[in-house]
């Protein structure tokens, strides 16, 4: 079991590497790299979460795209018949191209968000003197979604108590307006009050900020950073020169 939780810098580079290789490598290499990554993540402490998300999101998408491209590809004139089923050859290639790319890219992105939490990313940006409002939005975006959902269920509950029919499309539209307007009004008014509170907390300060403790990379982080940057440069050089 790998317990290593990397610093944001190597994880970010990892994401860049995945995105670059998703658009440069050949189909077979993409599949091989994705499978290797998946194997690697099975041993990671967050591997379960990563694999589960991939099974839930990526596999259905890949299957749907694969089926779609192999069976309905009208431009083609070449058709293969395997065991009585008519397949399009161009469609098969396109399906391989797309599914391999999606598998690699999505694996990379899902791994990225599981290896570093939004909170960790935010605190890294904060340490590096990025505007504090950016950190605020990044970290609180998801927290406010919970608040939004909570308030939504509350308003929905009370509207249902008052008897809100949801049969035809017109009634649903009216219900949407009746729920959304108070909900959005509440959120916007609260945000305006929060603005006063944040100003009082010093969010408008223009002085250079100090930090409680420095955010340093460990030796493993540094090695991985150098390794990944090397690979990125190699791939870029290769695609430029060839």
């Amino acid at each position: 079991m790998i317990r290593y939780l990397p610093h944001p810098v190597p994880v970010f580079l990892f994401l860049v590497l995945i995105i670059i290789s998703g658009f440069t490598l050949s189909i077979e290499v993409r599949f091989i790299v994705s499978v290797m990554l998946l194997l690697l993540f099975t041993f990671h402490i967050h591997g379960n979460k990563i694999l589960r998300t991939i099974v839930r999101i990526v596999i259905p998408l890949c299957i749907a795209i694969g089926l779609f491209m192999t069976f309905i590809y009208p431009e083609t004139e070449q058709w293969l018949t395997i065991a009585g089923i008519r397949l399009s050859r161009d469609g098969l290639t396109a399906a391989g191209e797309m599914t391999s790319r999606i598998l690699l890219l999505f694996t990379g992105i899902i791994a990225f968000f599981n290896l570093i939490t939004i909170q960790r990313l935010g605190s890294y940006l904060y340490q590096n003197n990025l505007p504090v409002w950016l950190v605020f939005i990044l970290i609180n975006g998801l927290k406010f979604v919970d608040r939004f959902k909570y308030k939504l269920s509350e308003i929905h509950f009370y509207q249902r108590l008052r008897g809100m029919p949801l049969e035809n499309i017109w009634q649903r539209w009216k219900a949407t307006v009746k729920i959304l307007i108070p909900l959005l009004y509440f959120m916007i008014e609260e945000s305006s009050n929060r603005a006063i509170a944040l100003e009082m907390r010093g969010f408008t300060a223009t002085t250079r900020r100090t930090t409680l403790k420095p955010d340093r990379q460990s030796t493993i982080d540094k090695i991985i950073t150098i390794l990944i940057s090397g690979i990125i440069i190699f791939i870029l050089l290769r695609s430029i020169l060839l």
């Binding site: 409002w133 605020f136 939005i137 609180n140 975006g141 998801l142 406010f144 979604v145 608040r147 939004f148 959902k149 939504l152 949407t176 729920i179 959304l180 909900l183 959005l184 959120m187 916007i188 609260e190 945000s191 305006s192 929060r194 603005a195 006063i196 944040l198 100003e199 969010f203 408008t204």
Partner: peptide, 20 residues
């Protein structure tokens, strides 16, 4: 502050509308 506070709520609305 009013602007970035509203931006955060904007993010929450974008993500929460799926639920609605």
């Amino acid at each position: 502050p009013p602007v970035f506070s509203l931006m955060t709520v904007g993010v929450a609305i974008n993500l929460g509308m799926g639920q609605v």
